[in-house]
């Protein structure tokens, strides 16, 4: 009970400090990034295969991309939620969302209907969802990231 009141107090303080929308956007994007990282960290081999299937990176970068960026997603997710390194976290998150969206649109345009690998490394988990849906979903996340970026950089704090 005391802890719940403490948490409520912390959220109320952040709400007053950041504003409701930036706080909500940070919490949503933070949760999304943490969720997206877990399966990739647990199954790096499978994620490396997903990265390879995108056919964008040279072979030499496939495994490194499967090893480091999932941890980047996890750390960014935590930092977004607790509000640490806000400018840097939001900047990288927005840049990553641009890269993810760009990669998907690139493959959509060239007709490669590949497994997205955004949240799960299992092929069958997303086989019925089209790339268009992935693009739309990532577009919404990017919109959220851009709004957050502008509120942080153009805000008075």
């Amino acid at each position: 009970m005391i802890m719940a009141e403490g948490q409520t107090g912390f959220l109320r303080m952040r709400w007053k400090q950041d504003g409701l929308f930036p706080l909500a956007a940070r919490l949503i994007l933070g949760a999304v990034f943490i969720y997206a990282s877990i399966d990739k960290i647990a199954h790096p081999e499978a994620f490396a295969k997903v990265v390879y299937n995108y056919q964008i990176l040279p072979d030499i970068l496939v495994n490194l991309t499967a090893i480091i960026p999932p941890w980047l997603e996890l750390i960014l997710g935590f930092f977004l939620i607790i509000g640490l390194f806000r400018e840097g976290s939001v900047g990288i998150v927005t840049a990553l969302l641009v890269v993810f969206l760009g990669a998907m649109i690139f493959n959509l345009v060239r007709g490669l209907d590949i497994h997205c690998g955004c949240f799960s490394t299992r092929q069958e988990a997303a086989s019925n969802i089209s790339m268009c849906l992935y693009v739309f979903r990532d577009g919404l996340f990017l919109l959220l990231g851009l709004c957050l970026l502008s509120s942080i950089f153009l805000g008075k704090q």
């Binding site: 999932p70 750390i75 390194f85």
Partner: peptide, 16 residues
């Protein structure tokens, strides 16, 4: 944002 990004990326690379 620039120096924070550097710290976050280095931290991720080391942990990964």
């Amino acid at each position: 944002a620039i120096w924070q990004s550097g710290v976050i990326i280095i931290l991720s690379a080391v942990v990964g």
